[in-house]
Structure formats: C-alpha cells, structure tokens
C-alpha cells in the first residue's frame, strides 16, 4: 500500500511549482466558502473542471463529483425544506417545501462542495506528496513537523504490512472455528487480539526510530543536507505573476458581480 494520490501525466499543471499551486488551492477554497454569487462560483468550478480534463484527461472529470454524489443528493433533498424564505413554489398543507431562497442556497451548497472537492482532487492528482511537503516547508512549516509527516508516510506501508501479517497469522490459528460464526460480535472479538499485537509491535518500534533519528544527527545546529530542494522564489517569478493575476482577476470579478 502506497500513500500517494499523484497521477502521472504531462498537463500544464505538472510543471507548475507546488508553492503557488498550494496558494491558489487555498484561495479557491476560500472563494468557494465566502462567495455567494452563483455565477462566480459556477464559473470557478467550470475552470477547475476544464483544468482536470486538460491535465488528467476527460475521463477523470466526473471522478471527484461521483465520489460525493450521495452527499450532493442529500443536500438537494434536505436543504430546501429547512430554508423557507422568499417566494413559495411548493407546499404540503402548512409545510413549505420549496422556495426560491431554498433553491438558491441548495445550488450554492452543491456548487461550493463540488468546487472544493474538484480543487483538492486536481491539486493532489498533479502534485507529488514529497513536493507538497516541500511546499509546506517553504511556506513556513517547521522542520520537525515536516519530518514527522515524512516519517509517518514512510511508515504507513510498513504498518499496513504488519497488520496484514498479524491478521493472517491470527486467521491461521483459528482457521477451524470461524466458518459458522461471522456475526458482528464475533468479528469484533476476533479483531481485538490482532489490534493488540499490531499496537505492541508499533509501540516497540518507537525507541528504535528515536535512536535512528539521534544517530542521523537530528536536532544538531549544523545545516542539514537534502536529496531534493525546490528552486528559489526568483526562478518561479512567472508562475507567481500568473497566480497573483488569477487571484486578482477572480477577486475583482467577485467584487463586481
């Protein structure tokens, strides 16, 4: 199991530095959350979907929306009856079901959630995890915090294989007795010994990892070497100008509409 969401490709966003890309992501999310004009957030969603089709291929445009379809349906069904201001379109007895305010809010929430989902999907599909962490580091994340995230990502496949191995070993030990009992209680009862074994294995590896960090010189004041570095801010000036222009254009559009 590899904790990676990056999809290899050759679209325009792949060459874009992760730092302005991350700033643009934050800005897009803020705009989706703050802006109430349907044309602005609809337009922004459309731009992101166009970028997904150009960068990742047309087949992937619907993937982010498909994953959130149940919650979009829930939003569409449950939001209008709880927002009954404005002109009434439909009512059952005393209960107002559908009004123009309700419809507007529903559309806004659907566009907002689809937009945020698509923006995150585009970012994590076109940015390698290591580049993302380097970008966070460049934007002010302290070194110990970045190191913690990196080590966690390194240990996820390890923990997954530990869980699989221990789980298989426990299954083999109880192979004769599990056939006729597959209820919820039995599943939980069978799971606990596996979880205890995994946790003891994990906890025991903490002192070894701490010792490894010490041996590698963690905490010393001399400068650290690094396999990969992001280029200086000066080299991505064009990308920064493009990003700033996009932010300025969208803010102006949002203010004018």
């Amino acid at each position: 199991m590899i904790a990676e969401t990056f999809i290899r490709g050759r679209g325009p966003l792949y060459g874009f530095d992760p730092r302005p890309k991350f700033i643009l992501l934050i800005f897009a999310v803020m705009l989706f959350l703050i802006e109430s004009n349907l044309i602005v957030i609809g337009g922004l969603l459309l731009i992101i979907l166009v970028f997904i089709s150009v960068s990742l291929g047309i087949k992937r445009v619907l993937i982010p929306v498909k994953s959130i379809l149940p919650i979009l349906i829930l939003t569409a069904l449950l939001t209008p009856p709880f927002n009954t201001g404005g002109t009434i379109f439909l009512s059952l007895g005393k209960h107002v079901i559908l009004t123009d305010h309700g419809i507007q809010l529903t559309v806004r929430l659907i566009l907002r959630f689809s937009g945020i989902t698509a923006a995150f999907y585009l970012f994590f599909s076109t940015t390698e995890t290591s580049s993302f962490i380097l970008a966070l580091r460049a934007l002010g994340l302290p070194y110990p915090a970045a190191l913690t995230v990196t080590i966690s990502l390194r240990y996820i496949p390890d923990m997954f294989s530990t869980y699989s191995r221990i789980s298989d070993a426990h299954k083999l030990r109880t192979a004769g007795s599990i056939r006729n009992n597959r209820g919820f209680r039995h599943r939980v009862h069978r799971l606990f010994p596996v979880l205890i074994s995994v946790l003891i294995h994990a906890v025991k590896s903490i002192p070894a990892l701490a010792m490894a960090l010490d041996s590698k010189g963690f905490g010393r004041s001399n400068p650290r070497t690094s396999c990969r570095r992001l280029c200086g801010w000066g080299k991505i000036s064009l990308q920064l100008i493009i990003s700033t222009s996009i932010i300025a254009a969208l803010t102006t559009l949002a203010v004018l509409c």
Binding site: S152, A202, L209, A210
Partner: peptide, 10 residues
C-alpha cells in the same frame, strides 16, 4: 517525533 510519526501511521 518518533512516537507521533508511528502513531500517525497506526
């Protein structure tokens, strides 16, 4: 750091 990293993975 080791404790946080391992427990994050868990």
């Amino acid at each position: 750091i080791a404790a946080i990293a391992i427990m994050t993975a868990v």
